[in-house]
Measured scan of single mutants.
Amino acid sequence: NQASVVANQLIPINTALTLAMMRSEVVTPVGIPAEDIPRLVSMQVNRAVPLGTTLMPDMVKGYA
């Protein structure tokens, strides 16, 4: 099963992502692949992401 990127904390809108904000977890539906975590660092979210939410490509500016 593919691990996805999950929010490790509440991430406010327009926040630049850091490693501490993300974790890898096997979830359904599948979100951004966990191997993309290094690429996500310093990218901004375009909405508030609650703790435990799977990051989807449309939630991260410049990812999709």
Rank of each mutant, 00 (worst) to 15 (best):
T28L: 04
R47E: 13
T18C: 03
G52N: 14
V49M: 04
M43V: 04
M21S: 14
R23P: 02
A20F: 13
M21Y: 05
A64F: 03
T28I: 04
A64K: 13
P50K: 09
L51T: 13
R23D: 08
A3T: 10
M22K: 00
I11N: 01
Q9D: 12
S42V: 04
I13M: 09
A3C: 04
L40S: 00
A16F: 09
T15I: 07
T15L: 05
L51P: 11
E35P: 07
S24W: 06
T53K: 05
I37M: 14
P33V: 14
T53L: 08
V27T: 12
D36S: 07
M43I: 05
V6H: 02
Q9W: 13
G31N: 01
A48M: 08
Y63L: 10
N8R: 10
M59V: 07
I37Y: 02
V26M: 06
L40Q: 00
L51A: 10
D58V: 08
P12Y: 11
L19P: 09
N14G: 07
G62V: 04
S24K: 05
L51M: 13
A48P: 07
I37E: 03
M59N: 04
M22L: 11
E35Y: 04
L17M: 08
A7L: 03
G52R: 04
V6L: 09
P38I: 08
I11S: 00
M59G: 03
L17F: 03
G62N: 11
V30W: 05
R39I: 13
G52M: 09
P33G: 12
L51C: 05
K61M: 10
Q2Y: 11
S42Q: 13
Y63N: 08
N8D: 08
V60I: 11
G62F: 14
R47P: 02
S24M: 05
T28S: 15
R39E: 04
K61S: 11
V6P: 00
T53N: 13
T53W: 13
E25Y: 04
V41N: 04
A3W: 04
E35T: 13
L55E: 01
V30T: 09
V26W: 04
M59I: 07
D36P: 00
A20T: 10
G31Q: 03
R39C: 06
A7T: 12
M21I: 05
T53M: 09
A34Q: 06
A64E: 10
V49S: 02
A64L: 12
A3M: 10
L55H: 00
A16Y: 13
V49H: 02
N46F: 10
D58F: 07
L10G: 14
Q44W: 08
D58S: 12
G52I: 01
P33Q: 11
S24N: 07
S42N: 06
I37S: 06
A64G: 13
I11P: 00
I37Q: 10
P33I: 13
V41M: 11
A34K: 04
V5E: 00
Q2R: 03
V5Q: 01
S4D: 00
S24D: 14
